[in-house]
């Protein structure tokens, strides 16, 4: 599966178009990590726990999107966009969407 965030797959031609595909996931970290992040908030710096959480969930969202595209018979997803929102305390929603196409 080829994933790009440009209108086409560079160097290839789009032969079929399947419409929008999307994947999303809502994740929360356990209390221990939240507590550590709270402590880290005092001195500032990178919150590794949250970075990891977001990266994992973004991969999960991409995987779901890819699965949906595969079921449609696509071999590439173009014009991918990401969105993040926090739906509850310490929980994050990661959302990826794009256009499923077949390229040659």
């Amino acid at each position: 599966m080829i994933m790009t965030n440009v209108n086409t797959v560079p160097g290839k031609k789009i032969v079929e178009h399947f419409g929008i595909v999307q994947g999303s996931t809502v994740r929360a970290k356990h209390i221990g990590r939240d507590f550590m992040a709270g402590l880290k908030n005092l001195v500032g710096g990178e919150l590794k726990g949250y970075t990891e959480l977001l990266q994992d969930s973004r991969e999960e969202a991409m995987k779901r999107m890819e699965e949906q595209a595969r079921q449609m018979g696509a071999n590439a997803v173009v014009n991918i966009r990401f969105a993040t929102s926090s739906v509850a305390q310490g929980a994050a929603e990661l959302f990826a969407y794009g256009t499923a196409v077949r390229v040659e």
Partner: peptide
């Protein structure tokens, strides 16, 4: 030759 999506992310907090 080929193309692929790449991404990088970071969460940074401010000090007290």
């Amino acid at each position: 030759g080929s193309s692929a999506l790449v991404s990088g992310s970071v969460v940074i907090s401010i000090d007290y």
